[in-house]
Amino acid sequence: MCSRPFRLLDEQFRDGELCHDCTRWEEDPDWQGFLQKNTSIFLYNDFLKEVMAKYKFRGDYVLAKVFADYFKEVTKGWEADLFVPIPLSEERLYERGFNQAEAILTEAGKMPTDILSRVHTEKQSKKSRLERIHLPQVFQIDSQTNLHGKKVILIDDIYTTGSTLRHAAKLLKQAGADTVWSITLAR
């Protein structure tokens, strides 16, 4: 479900068709059913880590074009009403100069729909899974876009605990979205 390569995962972390991590999410009544599936384009390894650092932290925008080609390949045949990039906080956006998820959409020729924004701005990567899950909603929906019956695809750079995407998915579903899928560069 989270696009973790199953054959690389030890038996003890599997629960039938799902990995242990996804089971945990789906057993939690507060979170089950919001994110229908995630697709990650690459496995996070040392090489990708370096490329991502160059893209995200050094800000080498051109790499968005490279990623966009893979993005198009993977999303071929998907029918979606809206592509929604996970937003950055205002400070972070200024620091980086561009939103790395949105840039991939743009370069792939898809129209990004910016309906989400961040409520507050502490760095995610400094928190544990538990802290992330129990965070109050980190996003809010800004526009009046009608989400009823829509199929929405979220875009983010890395799937780590899945909490960012699930926070966003929950919000979109509660606002009426029919299905929410997500796609990330790395898992």
Partner: peptide
């Protein structure tokens, strides 16, 4: 290379050699 820059709000050339 060029990108739409949130610091200046325009399409902005940047140098890849010393990035």
């Amino acid at each position: 290379a060029i990108f739409h820059c949130s610091r200046c709000g325009e399409n902005c050339f940047y140098c890849r050699r010393c990035i």
